[in-house]
Design a protein around this nucleic acid. Structure first.
Lengths: 338, 338
DNA sequence: CTGTTAGCGCATTCAG
DNA sequence: CTGAATGCGCTAACAG
């Protein structure tokens, strides 16, 4: 087969030869094992430096059965909440020398399950997943097969072998709907994400409940689509067409909410006078749009750190066989759109 | 050492035993090697299915010296252009069964070079990098050490062993400045990214040149900061404070431009009447802000696909020892902010 | 404190 | 068409 271009990377044997020791000694130096003579250590370190040696982590993982990588997956890598999560997880992972393998769930490949299996075959020690298109049963099945720890972010569900980290949707819905109600809104419409109603997000259930409690409306109008600006625009237009008396729109996330803003503008509706609009996530663009967007802020960084530390702990200690849910407090940021 | 929880994942040997063949035969079936009897193949495939076997890609990589992963790195994973690039690269990679290892350059770790080395020790076959904090010399040094293909995105520079993929900054500057000039703007201020002037981006050189050609101003005012909304806001405020007669602001990217929008609003300046504002990248939020943002759109998806295919070709074929630059056409999208 | 032996899971020779 | 031997780079276990 074709040889690598240029010289091969040095191996532990090259270092050992140059330092005049056995490879085991080199291995000990790298692992910071105490039982190495200072002089020997110095020689080895010098050889490492001189050769520019870097351990092959795949070879190491093969024997330690630990790759020091975690996988993280979502159906949309371009989502700001996901980027923030990746960034914060990687930041947290650095202190332990862990790396992140990021994958976008391919819905054509067994609804995304194939992507998770790929992550496993890459040898990740644990997995964080934004479930979205995956049902609880999918995640449960995967966590059962996969030996390592699995964390689910953005959905609260008690799934065997899974720690779930998510916003407290009921608290969020109470805060948001309470705010809208205070502002005199009574006919609240919902923009849900594309999986609805096949995968019913707690966000919907919680909002429906809060709306019923506040206004007496038990089945608020709802339109589902992809959580992007253009699709949110289409969804909002549909909603307003079917229910012209709508006086408030709550969108699944800020992207859809921004689409709703555009739809209102298209229809000549004033926000917030005619229709109030609110989203979820608290992405930074929310304060630059016109009008600035009221939103339920998720502490993406805190949740990401929590996810990382759960995975890391899960590798070394126990993992809850019957699952566990960790809820996060939402923060309502009120801006001009409501 | 602590054993893995649950049963170990099945290996190729387990499959071989169950199918009653040797492991090489299993290996051949997996590799789709033709010389396997149909009946044997069927038995093996059934065993694979039954055990839920998935090849260990690290073990495979150890012997093939090819991990079928590419690394991609940037100093900020949360940047939309980077997310778009990751997403598009992964999409392109799927067809060849390649995966992406995403890393955020840690500036504390040798200005990000340490992160690149980590990627190498993880065994990636090639690397795509958004250089930002890395100077051309850094990238050159790394590409020299690393045996595999290296692609640099968002900066055009002829660096040995590196294919550089970037916007045609001169064409972009001509289009943008030409547009501003047509709109009667004569005192154009610049918001550059934080590396300026230590790492001078072509974007600055090109804009300066275009501004000189159009207005005769050879040293346009410039303020540098991080390419985020809040820092862009601060930078724009500084610029307008120092040069109150500024009638147009060109920002390094849309994030900074949105910050400039906020700064203008704070100062009671009307955009675009008093000051025109434009950015680069063409992120989707640009059309939702107030006023909608004029921007130089980069074809992130096209560039990402190009980057992937360059890397993939580089693994199998030749790589330009003296480097290569591939320029991409910018598209100027004119909206309300100018 | 250091070296030797063995093997992680797999693909690549080379034999049959 | 199939199997046996070999080794990728590394660490664990055991000797010295």
């Amino acid at each position: 087969m074709a040889r690598r271009r240029g010289p091969d990377r040095p191996t532990i044997l090259d270092v050992a030869d140059l330092a005049g020791v056995s490879r085991q000694t080199v291995s000990r130096v790298i692992a910071n094992h105490p039982s190495v003579a200072p002089e020997t250590r110095r020689r080895v370190e010098q050889a490492i430096e001189q050769l520019g040696y870097r351990p092959n982590r795949m070879a190491r993982a093969l024997v330690t059965r630990r790759s020091r990588t975690f996988g993280i997956a979502s159906v949309d890598m371009r989502n700001q909440l996901f980027s923030d999560t990746c960034s914060a997880m990687q930041e947290a992972a650095r202190e332990h020398g862990y790396s992140l393998v990021v994958a976008e769930l391919d819905r054509r490949d067994d609804r995304g399950m194939g992507t998770l299996e790929t992550l496993v075959s890459l040898g990740v020690d644990g997995i964080a997943v934004f479930p979205s298109i995956l049902a609880d049963e999918d995640v449960a099945a995967f966590a059962g097969r996969f030996g390592g720890p699995v964390v689910m972010i953005t959905r609260a569900a008690r799934i065997p072998n899974v720690i779930s980290i998510a916003l407290d949707e009921w608290e969020a819905a109470r805060k948001l709907v309470g705010h809208l109600h205070t502002r005199g809104r009574r006919r609240i419409g919902l923009l849900m994400n594309e999986m609805f109603p096949d995968v019913v997000h707690d966000r919907y259930l919680a909002l429906r409940e809060a709306i019923a409690a506040a206004t007496g409306v038990t089945e608020p109008p709802v339109v589902a689509d992809r959580p992007t600006i253009p699709r949110g625009q289409v969804a909002a237009a549909t909603l307003l067409d079917r229910h012209p008396d709508t006086d408030a729109i709550v969108a699944f996330n800020d992207m859809m909410a921004m689409g709703a803003l555009k739809a209102c503008k298209d229809l000549g509706l004033d926000v917030p006078r005619d229709v109030a609009v609110a989203g979820y996530d608290g992405i930074p663009f929310g304060e630059v749009v016109d009008p600035p967007l009221t939103t339920v802020v998720q502490d993406a960084f805190g949740m990401a750190r929590e996810a990382y530390h759960a995975l890391y702990a899960g590798i070394h200690g126990q993992w809850p066989a019957d699952g566990e849910v960790r809820l996060w407090e939402p923060e309502l940021v009120i801006r001009g759109s409501t």
